[in-house]
Write a protein that binds this DNA or RNA. Structure first.
Lengths: 135, 135
DNA sequence: CGGAATCCCACGTGATACTG
DNA sequence: CAGTATCACGTGGGATTCCG
């Protein structure tokens, strides 16, 4: 089944169900793995479990606040687990669940597409901007 | 090559390049097709060309402002084309480009993942919320 | 009909300081 | 170390209005 068919079918199904945005799986998912921070966190964790501050170092431009919140969201969705070691000072280790690892596959497909098509996109942008400037 | 390997490799490459968020293809792409409205527009157009107001009807909860802006962005990125018919009143038709259609493939993978895993995610959320409420 | 322009505010996000 | 709490700000995006 082609990508067009898959998407068109899904679309038809959702429309028939009244388009409840809250329950739409795609919207639900996109709000997570489509977002910048969750995606980056998952990619970093793909290499193996990491502690809180290690994650912070791996994604330099995330604030502690967003890191905490993003980790909570991903934990809530069952994409990663949070394991506390009662050492002193305490340390917390985050690692992907099977569900989280399964998310890496479509994400990898997206990343590959992004890298392969990036030149075309940049070219299209340059063309568009040039044409717009002509006006 | 596994998804983990692909993503870890990419991550290493970006880190080595200094993590320039502006030029990172993935961030660039995620800001488009990871976002809610662009994704939905592309999915709707997967079924065939559509006019402005038809798109608005197909995505009921998008405002005219966001519809216009989203279409502009996608046109700028070369994912769709805008064709004006000088009828009266004017009509405008949007359709996917080859580049736009190629984006459907990774998106379909994402949608399939989302639908297949949605029950697990909902269950994980319910469990998380229940445990949290116990405190 | 398809879009541009304007207003406006909720809320996402960062910065900072504090705690177990 | 791994967070929470608080405040303050900027802006994404909705509502509305006007135009060709």
């Amino acid at each position: 089944m082609s990508a067009e068919e898959i998407l068109s079918k899904r679309l038809a199904a959702w429309s028939a169900m009244g388009f409840d945005a809250e329950r739409c799986p795609v919207r639900n998912v996109l709000d997570r793995i489509g977002d910048k921070w969750p995606t980056l966190i998952l990619i970093v964790l793909a290499a193996g479990p990491k502690r809180f501050s290690a994650l912070g170092r791996a994604v330099p431009d995330i604030s502690k606040r967003m890191l905490t919140q993003t980790l909570r969201d991903l934990e809530r969705d069952g994409l990663l687990t949070r394991k506390v070691f009662p050492t002193k000072p305490p340390s917390v280790e985050y690692s992907l669940t099977a569900l989280g690892r399964s998310a890496l596959e479509p994400m990898a497909a997206l990343v590959e597409w992004a890298e392969r098509r990036h030149p075309e996109i940049e070219a299209a942008r340059a063309r568009f901007d040039r044409d717009a400037e002509a006006a």
